[in-house]
Simulated scan of single mutants.
Amino acid sequence: MTTPSPTVDRVELAPAADLFRSLGDPARLAILRHLAVSEARVVDLVEQLGLAQSTVSKHLACLRECGLVDSRPVGRASVFTLTQPSLVDLLAAAETVLAATGDAVALCPTYGTPDGAGE
């Protein structure tokens, strides 16, 4: 069996790294978690998450560009839904890993934040 070169590994893993980067913002994760439970309009997400309308719209645009959410018009509003139901499993797996590692990820000097609360 041959060992892949580090360059090939980086190329093959780039899409996964991009996916995790798209999930790397607490606001986007909150939006995805909400959409995992039910579809929502921007106004619903603003109310439920306590974020500014412009912030919610910006993050929804990012998630749509990543192919993780989609919308359909309902009257004058757009209703957003997850396009990838397997995100629910991914988020659940992340919660399992976080529960198993305790504060290790939050306190990581490279990726964590000083207070462990995220960005």
Rank of each mutant, 00 (worst) to 15 (best):
V56S: 02
A40H: 03
A94C: 13
V11I: 15
G24S: 15
A100Y: 03
A14G: 05
V37S: 11
L98Y: 10
L19W: 04
L107G: 10
D18M: 09
P114I: 04
K58E: 14
R64F: 06
E65W: 05
V97K: 05
V43T: 14
T55Y: 05
G116W: 05
R41Q: 15
E12R: 15
H59V: 08
L45F: 06
G112C: 00
S78W: 09
E39P: 11
T96Y: 07
L68E: 06
G118D: 05
V37E: 13
H34Y: 13
P109Q: 05
A92T: 14
S78H: 15
A40P: 06
V88R: 15
P6S: 02
A36K: 06
G67C: 03
A61N: 13
P6H: 04
R28S: 03
P73I: 08
R28V: 03
L90M: 11
D89F: 12
T55A: 12
G112H: 03
V79K: 09
L107A: 15
S78Q: 15
A30D: 13
H34M: 11
S22F: 11
A16W: 12
A52V: 05
A117Q: 14
A14T: 06
A27F: 04
P114H: 01
S71K: 02
L82M: 01
V46A: 02
S78V: 04
L35M: 00
R41A: 14
R28M: 02
L63N: 01
Q48S: 13
R72Y: 07
Q53A: 14
D103R: 13
I31R: 00
L63Q: 02
Q48Y: 08
T2H: 13
P85G: 01
L68D: 06
F20N: 02
A104T: 12
L60G: 04
V42E: 05
A92S: 13
S22C: 10
D115W: 03
A77E: 15
R72S: 08
T113V: 06
S5G: 14
D9N: 12
T83K: 14
R64K: 06
D103L: 06
S78M: 12
C108W: 12
A40D: 02
L13C: 11
G67Y: 01
E119R: 14
R28Q: 07
A40M: 04
P26K: 01
G102P: 07
V69N: 08
G118C: 05
V69Q: 06
A106M: 08
H34I: 00
L63K: 03
D89R: 13
